[in-house]
Amino acid sequence: MGASRRYVFPEPGDTLATLAERVMPGQPDAAKTLLSWNLHLAMRPFPVGEPGEILCTDVVYLEPPTARAGA
């Protein structure tokens, strides 16, 4: 079954920055780019802790949203 949009779950201890470093190694502004693809993490009504902190159950997308025909 093909995933409609690639994602990963964070590992214990991950922040958005450490996750970005792992999934987008060497890419400048990786954390910012990752956050821009995951606005649900930036916009959540109840932050989970320090800025950039993420949960192991968070869906973290590895690519931007796909355009949907007719949407």
């Binding site: 779950f9 590992e11 214990p12 109840f46 989970v48 949960l55 192991c56 159950t57």
Partner: peptide, 14 residues
């Protein structure tokens, strides 16, 4: 106002 305990589980736990 924190996530319930289930939301802190690594996927490997689930």
């Amino acid at each position: 106002m924190h996530p319930v305990p289930s939301r802190w589980a690594p996927h490997a736990e689930l």
